[in-house]
Nucleic acid binder design. Structure first.
Lengths: 133, 133
DNA sequence: TGAAATAGGACTATGTTAGTCCACATTTAA
DNA sequence: TTAAATGTGGACTAACATAGTCCTATTTCA
């Protein structure tokens, strides 16, 4: 099944919320309360977005998060890989596969699946956060 | 993470194998042996493809499977929904969601996510099995 | 110094996917 | 008519991924 993780959904809501609070610092607590997102989980997500330079943060009292870039400069693809890591449609196309595919070179569908992978990837690279805010 | 299930991979290999054995009946055992797919699992998959009228079968000795249609008449989308059911990128867009989304109408990203859903769907409807054989 | 905030490791619960096991039904050939 | 080869299909288990929780730093400001 092709599915976007709950975490990515939460990230999209958070980015929308931050984007709408233009230029103010926004705390994880505010985002959590206003969007009905579990606080601890959200914190992890925001941290990952920070590590990928999608968000910036100020620590300490009166701290919070703000966008590092314009929303149209953040492809959905980057958001997804920041949060969930790999964005491959099949294990064997991962750069760091957990286990070797037992089919290896004999796999009969590797080439068309790779092509499909590219097309899915392009779709998610074309979409940016601005499409969601 | 966006991922195609192992079952769908196996189904693609199976269809390719059947398609290449033109017009001969092909047994689940042959497909399993030649593609290194667990027999019992493959059986279930072939049965589902039969129920969706992608494959037809003859039971009994000398039985086996054959394609019900040309490969270019089988969208990847149908294959996926035959095998895994829902093909929605988020739970709440399912026709039969397991649980109600706690956000309901207040969800801030429903409309753009629905649009993305349509685009993903179109991509998988455009691809047909002929792209994989 | 204490409260409010981010940072982040470790753990648990839940659900999904992959895979297995077993009994049965159908067909053909000997 | 029976044995073997095949598809059908339910129930179960194992392995893994995702979602969510808990707890303890660390940073900053008033």
């Amino acid at each position: 099944m092709i599915r976007i993780s709950k975490k990515v959904e939460y990230a999209l809501m958070a980015l929308k919320f931050i984007s709408n609070s233009d230029h103010k610092l926004v705390t994880a607590r505010e985002i959590s309360d206003n969007n009905n997102i579990p606080y601890d989980l959200l914190s992890k997500i925001l941290q990952k977005l920070k590590n990928e330079n999608i968000l910036s943060s100020n620590q300490g009292m009166n701290g919070g998060y703000f966008l590092s870039k314009r929303t149209d400069e953040i492809p959905l693809y980057n958001l997804m890989s920041a949060i969930d890591g790999d964005t491959v449609i099949v294990e064997c196309l991962s750069e760091h596969p957990m286990k070797d595919c037992c089919l290896e070179d004999t796999c009969s569908i590797k080439s068309p699946v790779t092509k499909l992978q590219k097309e899915v990837e392009e779709l998610f690279k074309r979409k940016t956060i601005s499409d969601f805010v």
